[in-house]
Amino acid sequence: MAGHFEIFTDAEANIRFRLLGADGTVLAISGSYADKRSAADGIMAVRETAGTGLIKEARSNAWGGTGRTRAGLPTPSQRRHRHSPAV
């Protein structure tokens, strides 16, 4: 048997879904949704993108977060560049 999705209500009364493997292992849990229809739409979106989605590695940096720039430092576009005049 293949894995399947389950729509459920969590302890805080939020509607969510989870993806279960064939052996019942929880593989993923969604964020919360306003209602079951929205959760079903979320499942459809996962189904559509799962087979074609790229894999990216998100790495934390020493300054926290997963961005490409250091927290608190300006991005390259925000830095002032000083150019020497052409001679």
Rank of each mutant, 00 (worst) to 15 (best):
4 H>K: 01
4 H>C: 11
5 F>K: 01
5 F>C: 00
5 F>M: 02
6 E>R: 08
8 F>W: 02
8 F>E: 02
8 F>S: 05
9 T>P: 01
9 T>W: 00
9 T>N: 08
10 D>F: 01
12 E>P: 01
13 A>K: 10
13 A>I: 02
14 N>G: 07
14 N>Y: 04
15 I>D: 08
17 F>C: 11
17 F>W: 14
19 L>F: 11
19 L>S: 13
19 L>C: 08
20 L>Q: 02
20 L>E: 00
21 G>V: 05
21 G>E: 14
22 A>G: 01
23 D>Q: 12
24 G>D: 10
24 G>S: 11
24 G>I: 07
25 T>I: 03
26 V>L: 02
27 L>D: 14
27 L>C: 14
27 L>Y: 06
28 A>R: 02
28 A>H: 11
28 A>Q: 11
28 A>V: 08
29 I>L: 04
30 S>C: 03
31 G>R: 07
32 S>W: 09
33 Y>H: 06
34 A>C: 05
35 D>R: 01
35 D>N: 13
36 K>I: 13
36 K>D: 15
36 K>P: 11
37 R>T: 15
38 S>L: 12
38 S>K: 10
39 A>T: 07
40 A>L: 15
41 D>V: 04
41 D>E: 12
41 D>G: 06
42 G>A: 03
43 I>V: 09
44 M>W: 04
47 R>Y: 12
47 R>F: 12
48 E>T: 01
48 E>C: 00
49 T>R: 13
49 T>W: 11
51 G>I: 03
51 G>A: 05
52 T>P: 10
52 T>M: 14
55 I>C: 04
56 K>Y: 14
56 K>F: 13
56 K>S: 15
57 E>L: 02
58 A>K: 07
58 A>L: 12
58 A>S: 06
59 R>C: 07
59 R>L: 11
59 R>Y: 05
60 S>V: 06
62 A>R: 00
64 G>L: 08
64 G>H: 06
64 G>W: 06
64 G>I: 00
65 G>C: 04
65 G>V: 02
67 G>D: 10
67 G>V: 05
68 R>C: 09
68 R>N: 12
71 A>E: 08
71 A>F: 06
71 A>M: 07
74 P>H: 00
75 T>L: 05
77 S>W: 12
77 S>G: 13
77 S>Q: 14
79 R>L: 10
81 H>E: 13
81 H>W: 10
81 H>Y: 09
81 H>I: 11
82 R>I: 06
83 H>R: 09
83 H>I: 04
83 H>C: 04
83 H>M: 09
84 S>G: 07
85 P>T: 13
85 P>N: 12
85 P>Q: 15
85 P>L: 13
86 A>D: 10
86 A>Q: 08
87 V>Y: 12
87 V>I: 14
